[in-house]
Design a protein around this nucleic acid. Structure first.
Length: 469
RNA sequence: GGCGCCGUACCCAAGCGGCUAAGGGAGUGGAUUGCAAAUCCAUGAUUCAGCGGUUCGAGUCCGCUCGGCGCCUCCA
């Protein structure tokens, strides 16, 4: 089945053609580990997870590489400001190395809670300084660099295709609109490959290099590490839409200049999650973490559902109301799946109308990952009276293999009795006795009491059960 | 100033030239229930910000107006 993806390079939907039959190499920009990742950061990882599952579903072998940026970068725009890692380290009273590991662990935990599968390879920038130095040397040998003010710069005027993917030539950039102009640069768009001349003090992470002791510029890691793990030319590069004009533009320039060939075939960029007050960003402080949603009583998967409810290339404004709606929908799905599972096993094979539903789902999936439609397919098949329960279960389990809402797992989960300082069963028995005697004030009293302790009573024709609120 | 995106029911959100404008949440009515919860059934835009235009046919293409947002070297 053809997989259609919107390629930023060309700004059109294209049929995915792998470089090697049955193989996909994808590189995804990973986290900068000086703080917790926020829920906006989780959108790219979620959609990349969907993309990867889609390829796997259709039989591809996926090599998924993600970097961990654990080298310090700057708090301010341009070459001003304090190193973020050092700032965090000072504030937490930890070393920069410990800070990096601490937030990296927190990141993996968030991915796990959102049911995002781990990349095939995750690579730390600090483990690949040698690769970066090698690449800078190659660029230097080929004449793409110059040294100015103690730092090594990439000379963008030597790379005629600079900014092609980002369509920068169409824009009249307002130089210095937000950022101080670096007088050491020959061209406005030039960028640092290697710093030896730090503008801030106490740089904690430094390495020896042919240009002196220092540290890498912030674009080179992705070029060096992707080439190492995926080769000089690979299929897909993913990231947030904000990376298009600078980070990815610079990555393309230095990679293609160094490698002497086309670097990436498909660029997949996700739009932003916004707060009502505007963009969510670490430096603005108006961000929410996965943990903060959990603290508010939500399941991380409620957020995954919320993300899947919108298309990845559209902005999505986060609100508690929409998270509530996502939670209601997800919990309802789990209940329905649970009910179906109670009726028997999933069908071993799909036939007739069930196949039509699967076909529809697949069609929506390969249409640039139209997850809102995929969710709609699930809801439609649930309501279809012509499908048997085993068919529905089989379909849902299969579809959830892509959507990753852990429906099977959640439905199979036995409710764990919270400790309420008493025996739930005994109270339920007492209540049913009261109901039998039509003593409803007593039975309602017991129900309210249990509800206050987090247990909701459910009367069914088959008897009384309970669930955690 | 330049580049780009968006405006679809009470809310979120698909649809991107052609059957009756997906789906979810909330609401309402009914069935069920001692009452609830859950579940099931029913119910929702003669209409897609506004105004023009192109077309046999337009949320869907073009222009203008109004409103919102993002980017222009920290950023997913």
């Amino acid at each position: 089945m053809d997989i259609h993806l919107y390629n930023t390079d060309g700004r059109e939907s294209q049929i995915f053609k792998p470089l090697q039959n049955g193989e996909v190499g994808m590189y995804c920009c990973g986290p900068t580990v000086y703080n917790y990742a926020h829920i906006g950061n989780m959108r790219p990882y979620t959609i990349q997870d969907i993309l990867k599952r889609t390829f796997t579903y259709f039989g591809y072998n996926v090599s998924h590489v993600m970097n961990i940026t654990d080298v310090g970068h700057l708090t301010d725009d341009g070459d001003e400001g304090e190193d973020k890692m050092i700032k965090a380290a000072r504030e937490k009273g930890m070393s920069v190395w410990d800070i990096a590991r601490f937030f990296e662990e927190a990141f993996w935990k968030d991915l796990e809670r959102l049911n995002i599968s781990r990349p095939t390879v995750s690579c730390r920038a600090t483990d690949h300084i040698g690769d970066m130095i090698d690449m800078i040397r190659t660029l230097e040998e080929k004449g793409y660099t110059y040294i100015s003010g103690g730092n090594v710069y990439f000379d963008t005027s030597r790379f005629p295709e600079y900014g092609k993917m980002a369509l920068l030539d169409r824009q009249e950039l307002r130089e210095g609109a937000r950022v101080g102009v670096d007088d050491n640069k020959r061209n406005y768009s030039d960028f640092v490959l290697w710093f030896t001349n730090s503008k801030f003090e106490n740089q904690a992470m430094v390495w020896d290099s042919p240009w002196g002791r220092g540290y890498p510029g912030w674009h080179i890691e992705c070029s060096a590490m992707s080439s190492r793990y995926l080769g000089k030319h690979f299929d897909i590069h993913c990231g947030g839409i904000d990376h298009i004009p600078v980070h990815h533009t610079n990555e393309i320039a230095q990679s293609e200049a160094a490698n002497g060939c086309k670097w990436v075939n498909y660029w997949i960029h996700n739009e932003f999650i916004l707060m009502k007050t505007g963009k969510m960003s670490k430096s603005k402080g108006n961000f929410l973490t996965v943990q903060s949603l959990v603290d508010e009583g939500y399941d991380a998967l409620d957020y995954r559902y919320l993300l899947l409810g919108g298309h990845y290339r559209s902005q999505l404004v986060f609100s508690w109301e929409s998270l509530d709606a996502a939670r209601s929908a997800r919990e309802s799905l789990v209940r329905k799946v649970k009910a179906l599972a109670g009726e028997g096993q999933a069908a071993a094979a799909l036939a007739g109308k069930a196949r039509e539903y699967l076909a529809s789902f697949e069609e929506h999936l390969v249409d640039d990952l139209n997850t809102p439609r995929c969710l709609a397919d699930i809801w439609s098949l649930l309501k279809d009276r012509d499908l048997t329960s085993p068919d529905k279960l089989a379909l849902i389990y299969r579809m959830d293999g892509i959507l990753g809402l852990r429906l099977e797992e959640s439905a199979a989960q036995e409710e764990e009795a919270p400790s309420i300082g008493g025996d739930i069963e005994a109270l339920i028995e007492e209540r049913n006795r009261a109901r039998g005697e039509k003593n409803f004030s007593r039975s309602d009293e017991i129900r309210d009491e249990l509800l206050a302790r987090g247990i909701r009573i459910i009367d069914t024709p088959q008897g009384t059960t309970w669930e955690k609120v």
